[in-house]
Simulated scan of single mutants.
Amino acid sequence: MGFKRVLLKLSGEALMGEQGYGIDPEIVQSIASDVAACVAGGTQLAIVVGGGNIFRGLKGSAAGMDRATADYVGMLATVMNAITLQDGLERAGVPTRVQSAISMQEVAEPYIRRKAIRHMEKGRVVIFAAGTGNPFFTTDTTAALRAAEIGADVVFKATKVDGVYNKDPNKHADAVRFESLSFLEVLSSELEVMDGTAIALCKDNSIPIVVFDLFGPGNIGRAVAGDPIGTRIHP
């Protein structure tokens, strides 16, 4: 069972690889080649990208910045990532459009739902940048919101780990990975998959979430094909 229209959520941290800051070109090209194979197979694909590799609003706020201001800076960081990702995808032969929730017409289209859907129907990848355009919302929430708006079959959260664990696998050798969870289990156990608003949005709209390791070769394609990979969160 494959998925026809998917929303892929990429964290900013995933783009920086082992560098500690910024964007690793090799990771961008690896993502681009995986996405190109999926689009060639007829999958309609949209991407929401975070900005934590450049600036994280919560950290700025903790350092004394006004929270709304810090979040706006974080949104601008996602636009930088989106344009970089667009370049990588187009070099891999995938026509791509960036749509920004904050108006910046010289570098990106404004977010228009119907236009985004039309791009996808024509085989273009759409990258949604600048979050929801509002402070106090994460890019996880953006992913859930855009997925509902465009009628996506699933949200893929591609991360540095191969699924959802009962505790941090990097700190605990006895951490156990879940193959499948319900939305209620995620919310009641406060598992750190996505923030509560994003989980609730997907729950209300019956959009499953698949959490998997971004760095396994071909993993995006496997997820699109519906192969058992990572952790599936479902109604």
Rank of each mutant, 00 (worst) to 15 (best):
D195V: 03
D168L: 06
S100A: 04
V79R: 06
A70H: 08
K171V: 02
M65S: 11
G52D: 06
A152W: 06
R67Y: 08
M194N: 06
E185G: 01
S206M: 08
A101C: 11
P228N: 04
E109L: 10
V98H: 08
V211M: 13
A40H: 03
I102R: 00
T159W: 14
K59G: 01
M104F: 08
Q44R: 12
E13G: 14
A173I: 00
E18G: 05
R113C: 13
D227K: 07
G64F: 12
M65V: 10
I47Q: 14
P25N: 02
E26H: 09
E18W: 00
E121F: 04
D34H: 07
G50P: 07
G17S: 04
G22H: 08
A62Y: 01
T159D: 13
T69V: 13
I47A: 14
A152M: 08
R67W: 05
R113K: 15
K167M: 08
F215Y: 15
E179L: 05
A200R: 13
R114A: 13
F178A: 09
V186M: 09
Q105D: 11
I83E: 09
C202P: 10
V224A: 03
H172A: 15
V154F: 13
G163V: 07
L7D: 11
P110S: 11
V176S: 07
A70F: 06
M65T: 06
S61T: 02
V161H: 01
K171D: 00
L181P: 11
H119A: 11
K160N: 13
S189Q: 15
I54V: 06
I47R: 12
I209C: 05
G2V: 06
A63W: 09
G226E: 02
A40R: 07
T197R: 07
L45I: 13
I112K: 06
G57E: 07
N219D: 12
V164P: 08
A77C: 04
G64L: 14
G20Q: 01
D162F: 05
A158W: 07
Y21T: 03
P235T: 05
R124D: 14
G230R: 07
F3L: 11
L85Y: 09
G20W: 02
P25I: 04
N219T: 14
E13T: 10
S188C: 05
A36C: 11
N205E: 12
A63P: 00
T142L: 14
E109F: 09
S188A: 14
T96M: 03
T159S: 15
D24N: 14
L10D: 08
I233P: 02
V125I: 02
F136R: 13
V73E: 05
T69I: 07
E179H: 07
I207E: 04
P228T: 04
S11A: 15
A148N: 14
K203Y: 14
G57A: 05
K203F: 13
R177K: 15
